Simulated scan of single mutants.
Amino acid sequence: MEMDTVLRPVLVIGGALVVTLIAGLLVDLLLRRADARHPETPLWGLLRRCRLPFQLVLCTSLLRGSYRQAGILPDHPLGVGRFLTLVLIASTAWLAVGIATAAVDSTYARYAAGAADDARVRRVRTQVTLIQRVVIAVVVVVALAAMLMTFPPMRTVGASMLASAGVLGIVVGIAAQSSLGNLFAGLQIAFGDTVRIGDTVVVDKEWGTVEEITLTFLTVRTWDERRITMPVSYFTSKPYENWSRGGAQMTGTVFWHLDHSAPVELMRSQLGSVLADIPEWDGRGASLAVTDTTPHTIQVRAVVTAKDADDVWTVRCAVRERLLTWLLDHHPYALPRIAVSEAAPRPEA
């Protein structure tokens, strides 16, 4: 009898582990074959990441259904049952999040591979990322609530709290006003398509690329690798520049302050030669004109184009540098000078 008391729990636990390992290997094998047969979708390969939570759910379910008959810790049946229930709820939530993430990532990957519009791809990526985080948050909250409800005292507390739900709702609403505002702003950004991951923006006079969007904050990576983190409500309540809105193509300007004798026509011709040697120039447009004059200098402006903000910055710097070098080598008189000669006398009336 004593031997049976020891042997039965060992056999049940060992059998559950063996069944779990075999089932995990079979599922992994099936997913691997499906992945090889359908290379056009990464779904099956992504689902292989769910092997561990699947095994945990299966093993916990087997033990949860047989721990009383097996006599596992017979002196503490409630504690064992509650522990297995908590593990089962947590592992089920883990598995659900893994499956949802795999499905969302697979759908986005297939869409991105077949889409030609980069702006639309970035919009879908932003929406998918925020939806995925909403799903994860909902699953986690439901799992935590289910775990708490396994404790009888928590059920009593929950029933008593319902009586004062109105007052608590008002207090929580006031306390979480900022967080809720950011939450709704995040959803508005996701489905209103105002700003997307990968967009080039200017916020607070800082130029950068949107690197991450969550339900509450947004991260902008600046040109010098700094990260600016700000609440998403900023992008629904304040003006900002989105250089990627309506297309990533950009037009940039280059300015020089030169002497009045500067050879503008020769500069205009040289601009075309310079742009032809700059691979970042997209060929859409180029022009050069005198846009202002002062008693000592003229302001010459060149207009150049490129496919995005990064390339237009490169083109602007290259044009500024090469035309300035050309002026120094061939037309140094065109550079601004300071007159030090005496002024001509005023003629007699």
Rank of each mutant, 00 (worst) to 15 (best):
R196S: 09
P345N: 14
T293P: 06
G169N: 09
L323Y: 05
V274N: 01
C59M: 14
V135I: 15
I170N: 14
L180W: 05
M149L: 11
R33K: 09
P9T: 00
G285S: 10
Q132M: 12
V157S: 12
F184E: 03
V12D: 00
V312G: 00
A146P: 02
T156R: 14
Y111H: 11
M161Q: 12
G79M: 12
S66D: 04
T251Q: 15
M267R: 01
E40T: 07
I72A: 05
Q299N: 10
Y111D: 01
T314S: 15
E212L: 13
D259G: 12
R337W: 11
A96I: 03
I72H: 00
L324D: 14
V141S: 11
T314A: 15
M147G: 15
V19K: 00
T236G: 07
D277L: 05
G181K: 01
G246A: 04
P345E: 15
R37W: 12
S61F: 07
A185H: 03
A115V: 02
R221S: 11
L17V: 08
M267S: 03
W243G: 05
L328F: 06
H330K: 12
V315S: 01
L30Q: 10
D193V: 03
A318G: 12
G71L: 08
V140N: 01
T216A: 07
L43M: 08
G158F: 04
S106F: 08
F191Y: 15
A343I: 08
A339L: 08
K238I: 04
A286M: 04
P9I: 00
R110L: 01
T293D: 13
I131G: 12
W243C: 07
G81R: 00
S287W: 13
D282L: 11
T216F: 04
I298R: 04
R133K: 11
H331K: 12
T222I: 05
A112C: 08
D35E: 15
V135A: 13
S237K: 12
D4S: 12
V134S: 07
P42M: 07
V80L: 10
F217K: 10
S179D: 06
H296W: 08
W313K: 12
D75S: 14
L73I: 07
W281C: 05
N182T: 02
